[in-house]
């Protein structure tokens, strides 16, 4: 899964999708994941990155990451290419 190109992510968590005109806000964890996606990391790597970065168990990390990625997809911010 990749973040669509042209999507701007600011440090304070503001996201603008010029394709649709929608804007969003995400929290720090959200910014962290989005940046990893921009860097084209795999889901497995992001999962590991999350656990390295935060005090976090594998089950919660997996559940939260899946939920977040499904929301990104739902909002048309990602592609599966």
């Amino acid at each position: 899964m990749k973040v669509r190109k042209n999507i701007a992510i600011s440090e304070n968590g503001f996201i603008f999708n010029p394709l649709t005109g929608d804007s969003f806000s995400v929290n720090e964890t959200g910014v962290f994941i989005l940046q990893k996606l921009k860097e084209e990391e795999s889901e497995a790597t992001i999962l590991q990155n999350l656990m390295d970065e935060y005090e976090l168990d594998a089950h919660t990390a997996e559940k939260d990451l899946n939920d977040f990625l499904s929301m990104l997809q739902n909002y048309q911010l990602t592609t599966n290419e």
Binding site: I15, F24, V26, T29, Y54, E55, L65, F68
Partner: peptide, 14 residues
């Protein structure tokens, strides 16, 4: 020490 974890969220700004 690692920062406190909070589940990631995304909100559409309506």
């Amino acid at each position: 020490m690692k920062p406190n974890y909070e589940s990631p969220i995304i909100k559409k700004l309506n």
